[in-house]
Amino acid sequence: MLLRPGTTCDQAIKLLERLTNQGLNDVQNAVPHVTSPGLTQGGWNNLAKAQRTYDEWTLEAGTELLEVFADRSVAGRLRGDRYDAIMHRQFNADRHANLMHTELQELRTYFTELANKLRRIQDRFSRHHVRTVVLDTNDLLHYMRFDKIP
């Protein structure tokens, strides 16, 4: 999980928390919880609306994740195989709603674990109070002493 240059761990953590606490909650609240095989037209309309909400959210969240993470797999997680199944396969209403709930819960877990990993990295380097020198080719070609590198 590589961040884009100029992006801090705090910014990435805030984005992940916002996606989890706001976006995912809104989408999950739109998905019907209890469906039956004889779903009424209104129930099917609610499921279709939840599907559109999910599609729009994955597009917006993916765009925001690509602005923060250089690692494209983070944003790619949003529109994987399960997304394809939710958007393009025909299931009965129970299966469709359960699949959406499962996917949203797994996304919540994924984003939470990613934020926790960033916190651990941040904590590990917060006690780093020494000077770090990164050598580049110019330093090596000109035989600069390490204590003279600006």
Rank of each mutant, 00 (worst) to 15 (best):
R18E: 14
T109W: 00
K148T: 07
G23F: 05
N116K: 14
E67I: 00
Q51A: 02
A97F: 11
Q28M: 13
E103T: 07
T63C: 04
V133A: 02
C9W: 06
Y143Q: 12
I13G: 06
T58A: 00
C9Y: 14
T35R: 00
R89P: 03
D123M: 13
N92E: 11
Q41S: 10
K117I: 04
I13Y: 05
Y143T: 06
E60N: 08
N21D: 15
R89H: 15
L78P: 02
G38T: 07
D26A: 11
P32Q: 07
E67D: 13
T35G: 03
F125P: 10
G6L: 01
D84G: 10
E103A: 02
L59W: 07
P32R: 06
N116S: 14
A93V: 04
K14N: 15
R4H: 03
A70P: 06
T137V: 07
P32A: 02
A30G: 10
M144W: 10
E106H: 11
R124F: 08
E56T: 05
Y54F: 13
I13N: 07
N45G: 00
L114Y: 14
Q105G: 14
Q11N: 04
A97W: 09
T132F: 12
S36F: 07
G62C: 04
H142Q: 05
W44T: 01
H129G: 08
M87D: 03
T137A: 09
L135G: 00
L107A: 09
T63F: 04
R108H: 14
Y54W: 03
L118P: 15
P32V: 06
K14A: 14
I149C: 01
K49W: 01
W57P: 06
G42W: 01
C9T: 06
N92A: 06
G76A: 04
K49A: 10
F91M: 13
Q51W: 00
H96V: 02
T20A: 12
L66W: 06
R95S: 15
Q41Y: 09
L2R: 11
R82Q: 13
A61I: 01
D71Q: 04
H128F: 13
D71P: 03
N45T: 05
R77H: 12
S126Q: 14
G62T: 01
Q28F: 07
V133L: 13
T35F: 01
W44M: 05
Q28A: 12
E64C: 03
L16C: 03
D10E: 08
S73C: 06
Q105I: 08
R108N: 14
A30P: 14
T132C: 12
T58D: 00
M87V: 05
A97P: 13
V133S: 08
S126F: 07
R119W: 09
R120A: 12
H128C: 05
A93Y: 00
T109P: 03
R145H: 11
C9G: 06
W57I: 00
S36Q: 11
D55G: 01
H128N: 12
F125R: 15
P150L: 03
